Computed example of a mutant assay.
Amino acid sequence: MTAVALVASSFLPRTGGVEEHVLHVARRLHAAGHRVAVWAVDQEDEGTPSVLDGGIPVRYLPAPLPARNVSSLLSFARSSPRAWRAWRTAFRADRPDVLHVHCYGPQGPWTHALARRTGTPLVVTGHGETFGDAHDVFGTSALLRSALRRSLADARAVTACSSYVLADLEARFGLASGSGTVVPNGIDLDEPGGPRPAWLPQRYVLAIGRAVRTKGFDLLLEAFARADLPDDVRLVIGGDGPEVEALRAQAEHAGIADRTVLPGRLSRPEVVTAVSGALALVAPSRVEGFGIVVLEGWRAGVPVVVTSRGGPPEFVDDGRTGLLVDPEDVEALARAVERVVGDRELARDLGAAGRAEAAAYSWERVAEDYAALYP
């Protein structure tokens, strides 16, 4: 069996698609007999775990990167020796046979350097960070762009959550055409929910994710305001982020503040419960690498309305397992929401087909796909 370090740009207690992906892959690889450690970029959040169930170690490592100014270069020169010692200590403690980078960020160049110094095989997995990052880090950092190119060239294997993500790595970062492998996201088919939150309406359309521009929640708010829906139907947008107050102001301006619920970040039990009771789940991203939230809706048997921009068209069968729509066409998005709320036969059929489809996206399958690429 293989000893693997899953090296993530972010991990618990933060929540999101990458954090969920790495958590479940770590658990499934461990259950299959592999020796697993999770390494993540150092963070100031309270409650960072040092070990996962089953004894999987979690280590938070400094990953400073220099910018093109004197003060930043001096700061990097001061901090990099301590950072390197932390990475070498983690390597000696966990003795990985493979270093597997998820969602390339500051940890990417450090992992690559460690792989080269120790002769350890490198695997790189893209989650759409090259185009979906809220701060457009790959558009602003020449250092990170060049580092990713070098890592892709040296990697033993490159995977991505969709062909769309692989195509971006090929077009902009030099990945050899056809050399990458698609390993999709997964879903825990038996994840339990929690008590129904007091803030949850009786009838509602739901969206979940980090409140950033790429997620398109502003487009959904506009579409909801235009849609011809029963007065008792509410819009719930679950998640925190820099756009929350702007969304609140937009709802007020559109005259739907009393029909819009913005509860902030949801716990995993709250996500499961909220999804299971929704009239529809909408993923209106301006671009999406995969769309793990689609699997949340499928698992619950809830009809999904999904962006046609990015990875979702690769696995959502339009009209059968969901409705695909360009969210920039707000009128079309409004009509799609109207359809799934107003046509309960359509909603039932979409939900049933989605639930059947979800079984193909187990985390066991994801872990097995990765393990097949390890030395």
Rank of each mutant, 00 (worst) to 15 (best):
R95D: 06
V137E: 12
N185M: 12
S162M: 11
V123W: 04
T111L: 04
A115Y: 01
W87E: 02
V205W: 05
S163N: 09
D94Y: 00
Q202K: 14
S141N: 07
R210P: 10
P81V: 10
A153Q: 09
V183C: 06
H127E: 14
L175T: 02
A142W: 08
H100S: 04
G209E: 10
E170I: 05
T140H: 15
A207W: 12
R95T: 07
D94W: 04
R156F: 05
P201K: 05
L200R: 02
A83V: 07
Y104N: 12
L74G: 08
G174T: 05
A157P: 02
A77R: 15
F91S: 08
P184Y: 00
A153K: 10
A90K: 00
R88I: 01
R116Y: 00
S72H: 10
L152V: 06
L143V: 10
T214Y: 02
G193E: 00
T140N: 10
T140M: 03
F173N: 06
R117C: 06
T159S: 14
L166K: 14
P184D: 09
P201E: 10
T159K: 08
D154K: 00
R78N: 05
V98E: 02
A86M: 12
T159Q: 09
H127V: 13
R95G: 01
A211H: 09
G132D: 15
K215E: 07
